[in-house]
Design a protein around this nucleic acid. Structure first.
Length: 109
DNA sequence: CTCTTGACTGAGG
DNA sequence: GCCTCAGCCAAGA
């Protein structure tokens, strides 16, 4: 069996699963935690396969707290409702109180 | 190997 | 604060 746990994609999934309930993080934060700050785009790219897995992709947004990846979900507002269900206030695809709900794996983990 | 794409980020105007 | 450009890196064709 290959060390898929060492693959970039799987690392992203692992960190994403570690995101606490009611918290969010950014692609760059995850990439930075993985030691590839410049690979934030790869984090999002990896999330393409997150759908159907145990990965809470709805807790991952861009650095602005904007739900840039909502278009990859089934519904138009599914991602927003998932976050609101966890206590995260989201208005117009924009997370409110971002500083309060932001979770940095490199600092919290 | 080369080219394209992408759920990003930072810098400059 | 908003818009645009460029850099970054990995995977797929």
């Amino acid at each position: 069996m290959k060390p898929e746990t060492l693959n970039f994609f799987d690392k992203v999934y692992d960190v994403a699963k570690l995101i606490p309930f009611g918290r969010v993080t950014s692609y760059g934060a995850i990439a930075n935690y993985l030691g590839a700050k410049r690979s934030a785009r790869m984090v999002g790219y990896a999330m393409n396969g997150s759908t159907g897995k145990d990965v809470p992709a709805h807790r991952v947004v861009n650095r602005k707290g904007l739900l840039t990846g909502k278009h990859h979900f089934d519904g138009t507002n599914l991602m927003q409702q998932l976050l609101e269900s966890e206590g995260v206030i989201v208005i117009d695809n924009q997370i409110q109180h971002l500083d309060s709900v932001f979770w940095d794996p490199s600092k919290e983990l």
